[in-house]
C-alpha cells in the first residue's frame, strides 16, 4: 500500500499570540514542532503499513525551515519526504493551500492508495484542508476518523466521530482520511533513524513543478478568504454546576458523560451503527 501523510510545522506553544496592532501571529522566539494531529496521522499510517506492507511518504508546504518536520518524519519512519516551498505559495488560505498540496501530490507522480491528514492544525484550526485536498483530487474522504476497523487492498472500514453519533463507514481506495485524537498513540522519534536521515533525501518542489502553473491559483493570489481582523480569543472555561441532591447530581453527571461519549450508556448516544 502507498500512503501519503500531509504534515505541517506549527508553533510549539499552547497559547498562540496575535500582535494586537498588526493582527499577525507572533512567531518570534517561539519554537516549532510538528502539528500534534499530524503525528497521529503519521502513526495511523505506520500502523496500517505494519499490517499491509508498502511505503509511507510525507508532504508539507512551508518555508525552507519546514525541513525540520520532514527530518522528524524520517526519525518516525517515513520513507520519502516532499517539501513544497516557494515564495509564490505564501499567504495561502484553505482554498489555495489545499489546491497547492493537491498539485504537489499530482506532481509526485505516485498513485497513493491512502492520504492521511490530521483532523486540524493547532495554529490554523480550520479542519478543512484535508477534505479540500480530496475534493481537488476527486477522491472520497472521511473526516474526524476515530478508529480504523479494517483495511483491505481495496477499501477501509472506519468510525467517524460525529456530534451525537458514531458513523461506521466503508470507503473505497484511493481515499483521504483526517484523523482524530485518540485513534492511536504516536510513537517517539528514533535516534537511530534520526541519525540515518539526511537533508539531501528531501524532495523540493516549487510552483514550476506543479501541473497547473497559473500563479493566480497559489498563495495570496489564489486565496478567496478576506481576513477582516485577527485577534486572540477570550479565554473561557465552560462549567456546569448542579446543586441538587447527590443522587440527582450523579444522574446529571452520568448523562453528561454519556452525551460527551466519555462513558457508554443505554441511550442512543455512542451507538455504533452497523
Amino acid at each position: 500500500m502507498k500512503i501519503l501523510v500531509c504534515i505541517k510545522q506549527v508553533p510549539d506553544t499552547q497559547k498562540v499570540q496575535v500582535d494586537p496592532e498588526t493582527g499577525v501571529l507572533i512567531r518570534e522566539g517561539i519554537e516549532t514542532k510538528m502539528n500534534p494531529y499530524d503525528l497521529i496521522a503519521l502513526e495511523t499510517g505506520m500502523q496500517i503499513l505494519k499490517k499491509m506492507g508498502g511505503t509511507l511518504d510525507v508532504l508539507t508546504m512551508g518555508p525552507p525551515a519546514a525541513e525540520e518536520v520532514l527530518m522528524e518524519a524520517f526519525a518516525l519512519g517515513a520513507n520519502e519526504a516532499w517539501l513544497m516551498s516557494d515564495r509564490r505559495f505564501a499567504g495561502a488560505d484553505v482554498l489555495a493551500t489545499s489546491y497547492t498540496l493537491a498539485q504537489g501530490i499530482q506532481a509526485m507522480g505516485k498513485e497513493f492508495d491512502l492520504i492521511l491528514c490530521g483532523k486540524q492544525t493547532i495554529d490554523g484550526d480550520t479542519a478543512q484542508v484535508g477534505p479540500a485536498i480530496a475534493e481537488v483530487l476527486e477522491i472520497p474522504h472521511v473526516s474526524w476518523v476515530k478508529k480504523i476497523e479494517s483495511v483491505s487492498k481495496t477499501s477501509l472500514i472506519v468510525q467517524q466521530e460525529q456530534m451525537d453519533v458514531l458513523a461506521r463507514i466503508e470507503v473505497s481506495l484511493p481515499c483521504l482520511l483526517t484523523v482524530e485524537k485518540g485513534i492511536v498513540q504516536p510513537r517517539l522519534p528514533s535516534y537511530i533513524k534520526k541519525r540515518m536521515a539526511d537533508r539531501k533525501m528531501i524532495h523540493w518542489m516549487t510552483l514550476d513543478q506543479c501541473p497547473d502553473r497559473d500563479p493566480k491559483r497559489y498563495g495570496l493570489n489564489g486565496s478567496a478568504t478576506q481576513v477582516e481582523r485577527m485577534f486572540e480569543p477570550e479565554a473561557s472555561a465552560e462549567a456546569v454546576q448542579w446543586e441538587k441532591s447527590s443522587g440527582e447530581n450523579a444522574a446529571l453527571l452520568a448523562d453528561l458523560l454519556k452525551k460527551k461519549k466519555f462513558i457508554q450508556g443505554g441511550n442512543d448516544h455512542g451507538r455504533i451503527e452497523d
Partner: peptide, 28 residues
C-alpha cells in the same frame, strides 16, 4: 547531552533511543 547519552546507551546494550521533546510526548 542527547548525542552523548544516546551513544553511551547504545554502546552499553540499548537497542535504540526514543526521543521525547514536546509537551505531548512528555505527557505520554
Amino acid at each position: 547531552m542527547l548525542d552523548q547519552a544516546a551513544n553511551c546507551a547504545m554502546e552499553n546494550g540499548a537497542l535504540d533511543v526514543f526521543l521525547s521533546d514536546t509537551e505531548e510526548r512528555q505527557e505520554s
